[in-house]
């Protein structure tokens, strides 16, 4: 049984380092694709999910955190406050990937939906208590809608998260699942997470 330090070293060595950097860059630039295609999803955790599946939980947590820190430095300081959410995304995704959920599409969809619920539960208090439920994004209209129904700011932010996050995360998970399935085995086996992705013989 490897120690925590050994597991960490295994997770963050070899191709994991450039992949984590790519994960950060993908998180930050994928919005370019969704806005060009005019599709109303963020997919801003796609790099984190990819690293979680191929490398492991701590590499994914670092990828998500660095992406949010860099987003702050590029003029979106609010992203800094959501670092706990991206860490949770990385940990949860790696957890279910280790348990073989990324071998079948129905489990991937279920995992994505659960991830969306977790993300909503974690981001609602931040959104409500730090930002008063307003992020100056399209989802603000959902918050306003739920507040106009008589809910307070926390519940409105939570309902907004529960409405939009599961869809976003399911799409993210499906994209990563389909991409990883297309990887040649000789490349896949270079990553520490490959054992959970290959079907047991």
């Amino acid at each position: 049984m490897p120690t925590f330090r050994e597991r960490l070293r295994l997770e963050m060595s070899g191709p994991a380092i450039p992949l984590m950097a790519f994960g950060v860059a993908i998180n930050l630039t994928v919005g370019q694709v969704t806005s060009a295609l005019k599709i109303p999803v963020y997919l801003d955790s796609i790099g984190t999910v990819l690293v979680a599946v191929l490398c492991g939980p701590w590499a994914a947590a670092l990828t998500g955190s660095l992406a949010n820190i860099l987003a702050s430095s590029f003029g979106s300081p609010a992203m800094m406050f959501f670092i706990p959410v991206v860490i949770a995304i990385g940990l949860w995704t790696a957890f279910i990937a280790r348990h073989g959920w990324f071998r079948s599409l129905p489990l991937v969809v279920m995992g994505g939906a659960l991830q969306g619920i977790i993300a909503a539960l974690l981001s609602a208090p931040i959104s409500a208590y730090v930002f008063g439920g307003t992020m100056l994004s399209g989802t603000d209209f959902l918050v306003i809608f739920f507040r106009s129904l008589g809910n307070d700011v926390f519940w409105s932010a939570l309902y907004q998260g529960l409405t939009s996050d599961p869809i976003d995360k399911v799409v993210t998970y499906i994209i990563v699942f389909l991409t990883v399935r297309r990887l040649p085995q000789r490349i896949l086996t270079r990553f520490p997470g490959s054992r959970s992705l290959l079907n047991p013989q």
Binding site: L19, F22, I175, T179, I187
Partner: peptide
């Protein structure tokens, strides 16, 4: 679009 992007990154 995202498939080739992610594959090439890996």
């Amino acid at each position: 679009i995202l498939g080739p992007l992610i594959l090439s990154s890996i």
